[in-house]
Simulated assay, not measured.
Amino acid sequence: MTWQTANVPVPLSKYEAKHFKLEIDGKVATITLNRPERKNPLTFDSYSELGHFFRAAADDEDIKAFVVTGAGGNFSSGGDVFEIIGPLVEMDTAGLMRFTRMTGELVKAMRACPQPIIAAVDGICAGAGAIVAMSSDIRYGTPESKVLFLFNKVGLAGCDMGACAILPRIIGQGRASELLFTGRPLRGEEAERWGFYNRLVPGDAVLAEAQAFARDLADGPTFGNAMTKRMLQMEWAMSVEEAVEAEAVAQALCMTTEDFARAYRAFAAKETPKFEGN
């Protein structure tokens, strides 16, 4: 089994997506999983293309924030049963390892991408779709949405694409254990109460709200935002003492930026700072 390796140019505004819909509005790019007739499942090719796309984002100077969503009232039903699960049953161990490492690369790319990623989740958000939402930095959901980590339902472990590392850090060890052992749905209000969603929004407004939040971040000190994301990631593996020292270095570096000087001049003049990301 082979799958596409995408050649993603920088700037991303020149990229023509093949396995998802890409819309760019100023400094915000919206990625839409776009197979609504099947509730937007992921395929070998869409996994691969999304991973390459987010890797390329590190070198893009124009896009400052991403929104990820799904078409037709659902986020994503996860890995396509017939296009992924069926072929996996026929693969040897080496092929299966290539697949699981490739899917994990998508999560690594999303976490390494310096721009904030906001997920706008409605309807079904299952399996690998739940992982994409989990791997985003911010999640907006709807009361009707259902998040399901379904891996045990197909005879697999819950430790898929970093779920056992990332999900407990969002909702806590006990709650993550429950979802990963049972595969039960995490519905909208409970997801917000547990901290999986940052905000609960009506279905007809969730994408617009997520995009508005992304625009606010894109208009902010984006060098500082990227540093915040990087340190949130790096400090998982640090002691408190190491984290305090690492943040001292990171913040000193941010203090060398022109945005820091712009903020000082604006505050001194009683004006609102206009950040440019440098």
Rank of each mutant, 00 (worst) to 15 (best):
W3I: 07
Q4S: 11
T5L: 09
A6E: 15
V8G: 13
S13H: 06
Y15S: 10
G26D: 04
V28T: 13
V28E: 06
A29F: 06
L33F: 10
N34Q: 02
R35G: 04
E37S: 14
R38P: 04
P41F: 04
T43Y: 07
F44D: 14
S48W: 08
E49K: 03
E49R: 02
H52E: 14
H52P: 05
F54V: 01
R55F: 10
A58H: 13
D60Q: 02
E61S: 15
D62H: 12
F66C: 05
V68A: 00
G73V: 01
N74Y: 00
S76W: 01
S77W: 07
D80T: 08
V89N: 14
M91L: 14
D92Y: 03
D92H: 05
D92C: 00
A94N: 14
F99Q: 13
F99E: 13
F99P: 05
T100Y: 15
M102D: 13
T103Y: 07
G104P: 07
M110W: 01
R111C: 02
A112R: 12
A119G: 03
V121L: 00
V121P: 01
G123M: 02
I124N: 10
C125G: 01
C125T: 02
A126S: 15
A126E: 15
G127H: 10
A133W: 01
S135Y: 03
S136N: 00
S136V: 05
G141Q: 00
G141C: 00
E144F: 00
S145L: 08
S145F: 04
F149V: 02
F151T: 12
K153V: 09
V154R: 14
A157T: 15
G158H: 07
C159F: 12
C164M: 12
L167C: 03
P168V: 04
P168H: 04
R169Y: 08
I170Q: 08
G172C: 01
R175E: 11
R175M: 04
S177W: 03
G183A: 02
E189I: 05
A191E: 02
A191S: 05
R193D: 10
R193W: 02
R193E: 14
W194H: 11
W194K: 13
F196I: 00
F196G: 08
Y197C: 11
Y197T: 05
Y197N: 11
N198M: 11
R199I: 05
R199N: 10
L200P: 08
D204M: 06
A205L: 13
V206H: 00
V206W: 02
L207F: 00
A212S: 06
A212D: 09
F213Y: 12
R215P: 13
R215C: 12
G220R: 10
P221S: 12
T222N: 12
R230H: 09
R230Y: 03
M231W: 06
A237H: 11
E242I: 05
V244Q: 11
V244T: 13
A248M: 06
A248N: 15
V249I: 14
V249Q: 11
A250C: 12
C254S: 07
T256V: 09
D259L: 03
A261S: 13
A263R: 10
Y264G: 14
R265A: 09
F267V: 11
A269W: 07
A269L: 05
T272G: 12
P273K: 09
K274C: 05
K274I: 14
F275K: 11
G277R: 09
G277S: 09
G277F: 01
N278D: 15
